[in-house]
């Protein structure tokens, strides 16, 4: 049960939840299209995940188990505050394990552990409109989406190629959903883009500032934009994770002293920890077999 008194379940009032729920259903029916909704004030500032929180508050129920990550980590301020907020106002169970969560609210990462059917991934989105930096007028971007007029974005990527010799966009990398709508995947690194394609879990996106909700249903085609001669590529590292040794996960560069020494570690803390646990267990098992 919820431990906070004087609040509705999961903070939002029922009429706001119903309005957001109707917007979510329309968003799911039109994959990648941004549905405007009546954004509510949440008890933390815009830019701290109010859009994602409103989606979570409308979707969450007593049977859910919630995980919240910020840049892959369960233990950063934003993640801890949001997890505690829902533990207090909704009384739901929380977890740090990707596999054990039914709902995952995320800021800027997709977990390394592949998501399963019936899980829901909720993204916090700062700027939902992929074309906004190319065309500032909402009336125009609406028309561009209506007409599938996306040449301007290809030009932007081409300018990267002309200037740097490769597509320099490394996060917030635009995708086409179901071959119809161009979508901003929120500022996840482009490393995570391929995970969105035909993901078995439902993906919901909430932008609190701009009051937009959009969605990618399970098993939906999500394609990162590219060119025939400059195909889409993800980041690669020469290093392995300094803690778990992973050579295939997204790594954060951490400065560890005043001399500028650095180490690379997994950005997904749950993934890194579970790899360490597995390594310790198999080492113990080997020792037992030998002795």
């Amino acid at each position: 049960m919820s431990t906070a008194t004087g609040y509705n379940f999961a903070y939002l009032d029922e009429q706001s939840k119903r309005m957001i729920r109707r917007a979510i259903l329309k968003a799911v029916a039109i994959p990648g299209y941004q549905v405007p909704f009546g954004g509510r004030e949440m008890p933390l500032p815009h830019g701290w995940g109010t859009g994602g929180m409103q989606v979570t508050a409308s979707v969450i129920g007593e049977a859910d188990r919630l995980k919240v990550i910020d840049q892959g980590a369960d233990d950063t301020t934003n993640a801890v505050s949001i997890r505690r907020f829902f533990a207090t106002t909704a009384g739901v169970e929380t977890t740090e394990s990707t596999a054990a969560a039914s709902l995952i609210q995320t800021r800027h990462r997709i977990p390394e552990t592949p998501l399963q059917a019936d899980q829901i991934l909720i993204y916090q989105v700062p700027i939902p409109e992929p074309l906004r930096f190319i065309e500032p007028r909402e009336t125009e971007t609406r028309k561009m989406h209506a007409l599938s007029e996306y040449g301007a974005m290809q030009v932007k990527l081409y300018e990267d190629v002309a200037r740097f010799g490769h597509i320099a966009t490394s996060y917030d990398y635009p995708v086409m959903v179901n071959n119809r709508y161009m979508m901003d995947p929120s500022p996840i690194p482009k490393f995570d883009n391929p995970k969105m394609n035909r993901m078995p879990a439902l993906q919901l996106f909430g932008a609190g500032f701009e009051k937009r909700i959009y969605a990618v249903p399970p098993y939906t085609e999500v394609k990162s934009l590219d060119f025939d001669d400059y195909p889409f590529e993800v980041q690669r590292w020469d290093e392995n994770c300094a803690i778990c040794g992973s050579d295939h996960s997204f790594l954060d560069e951490v400065i560890i002293d005043d001399a500028g020494s650095k180490m690379f570690v997994c950005s997904d803390t749950d993934y890194c920890r579970s790899r360490q646990t597995n390594a310790t267990e198999s080492a113990t098992a080997t020792e037992e077999t030998l002795s």
Partner: peptide, 19 residues
């Protein structure tokens, strides 16, 4: 229980609409 039951039915509808 309008709050919990409303949420449970919405989740059923969300599953129906997304699958």
């Amino acid at each position: 229980d309008p709050v919990q039951h409303g949420q449970q039915v919405f989740r059923a509808l969300l599953k129906a609409m997304s699958e």
